[in-house]
Write a protein that binds this DNA or RNA. Sequence first.
DNA 1: CGCGTTTGACCCGCGC
DNA 2: GCGCGGGTCAAACGCG
Length: 206
Amino acid sequence: MEGQEPPLPPPPLPLNTTNNLPLFDTRNFPPLISSQAMQDTPQVGSADIDWVSLLTASNNSIFNNNNNSANNNLMHMSSNASLTSMTNNVNGGDIQNANQIKGKFRKGKKYEPPRIAFHTKSSEDILDDGYKWRKYGQKSVKNSSHPRSYYRCTHHTCNVKKQIQRHSKDTSIVVTTYEGIHNHPCEKLMETLSPLLRQLQFLARF
DNA sequence: CGCGTTTGACCCGCGC
DNA sequence: GCGCGGGTCAAACGCG
């Protein structure tokens, strides 16, 4: 399959046709606030996010910890060409439009699947993003006292991976790098959405 | 017993 | 070619 771009997955969520946004209550999202440690990298505000790309690019960490103030989670998204180097030194990178989240071919190289990274201020290393992951490796990283963990999506047809490690400069920040696109819906998300969808279907009859 | 984690070994790309 | 660092594999192990 080398040299051939994988087919795009079906959209995972019903969309509001007027603004192309997924149908859910954004008030439950964790706050998108900058922190001192993040000041050296650009911040993505909620208004800047292309939710469609975001969701299909497996970034459902946005749904995690529903306002879990105890965790004091702050989220910061990076999706960019410099992600490769970013995952090496975990120093952040340039923010680009989320529409640019897609894999690419490099001359003479293998296809590089889309990658996207989150900075999340949390005491927890493992953040619940709604998908089920299996750890397949852990490595110590140069210039970092914290190891990097490697996870794969447990869905049998899904090839999405993620890496988790602490920020080298601010260890209160967890850097989660997603690689690839889920080809199945997020079970936890669908579980959350289905009552709402049923209610909408019911209301739509009137 | 099935599933997930741990961890050392192995592989591969890159720079020198 | 060699060494280094990152990524993956897979056997052993633990847990429910």
